[in-house]
Design a protein around this nucleic acid. Structure first.
Lengths: 146, 146
DNA sequence: CGGAAAGTTTAGCATTGGCTAAACCTATTG
DNA sequence: CAATAGGTTTAGCCAATGCTAAACTTTCCG
């Protein structure tokens, strides 16, 4: 019971960053799945569980389990033994991810990061950039072009 | 028309990025804890579990459990009811994290990202930047100064 | 010194995200 | 049109991270 007496001092603010990171993590996986599903639908007309599994480097069963969660979250729909669809919410998330991804990857390339590395790094970074940082990156890109 | 045959094409490579992200995640938490412990030791001479908990915005018990893992991983040492110390390995990891952190945060600031945002974003980004990207950031900073 | 306050650890639980093996559908094809 | 090959789902396991409540130490003060 004691340590509960902690008052919200300035460390409250300190911990904000970490708290955001933990929050990001929960959505991060969802975003990766959703973005990939969108890509598959655009590329091949449909997203099948096993394609998702292969591209993500994950077992089939893991995808099934995750799809259940994403369905509960209202991001995808799926009938048993059928392919996966995105809801409106899902598409919104996918588009947003793509937008961020494009900016970050383009930015890294403009910075002089090798292509392969830019692709990999942007995949990890995209979930941790705020709008303010995205704006700064976009500004940099715009200036570069002129 | 499901069960279309799929060959193990370039998607193998595709999955590499995601696989790295998942790998990063396991170390990420450890890095955050270790870096924070280093900061506490430098700041106040010792790192106590409850300080770590408070700054990370996490319950005391969570820190205890994590310390056990970090101890098994050879990153920290701790006697029951005593404060936490870093091993050589632990210091190395902390230093490396600080180095990355400094570059990323400095870079964001140079890009024009507001201070508060730069601090928060860099916390999340630092675990996902490769050495190549760090070099590019450092190069940018050096050029900026001239 | 002894006891209460303050801090730490243990116990027990929940969720996420991953895996393998086995059971289960579906579509092709003989 | 039924057998079977080959995807898909279920079952059951594991580790990591987080939480609360209760038990346990340590510290500090009268």
């Amino acid at each position: 019971m004691p340590q509960r007496t902690r008052k919200p001092g300035p460390s409250k603010i300190r911990s904000a960053a970490f708290q955001r990171i933990r929050a990001d993590h929960s959505s991060e996986l969802a975003e990766d799945y959703v973005e990939l599903i969108a890509d598959l639908i655009d590329e091949k007309g449909e997203a099948r569980g096993s394609d998702v599994a292969m591209r993500l480097g994950v077992a089939n069963a893991t995808v099934v389990k995750t799809m259940k969660r994403l369905q509960d979250a209202g991001l995808v729909t799926q009938e048993p033994y059928r392919s996966i669809f995105l809801t409106g919410e899902g598409w919104k998330m996918a588009e947003d991810g793509r937008r961020k991804h494009k900016i970050v990857e383009g930015f890294l390339l403009a910075l002089g990061v090798p292509e392969e590395t830019a692709r990999i790094d942007s995949e990890g970074i995209e979930h941790h950039v705020s709008e303010a940082t995205l704006r700064a990156m976009a500004r940099f890109l715009a200036r570069k072009v002129m």
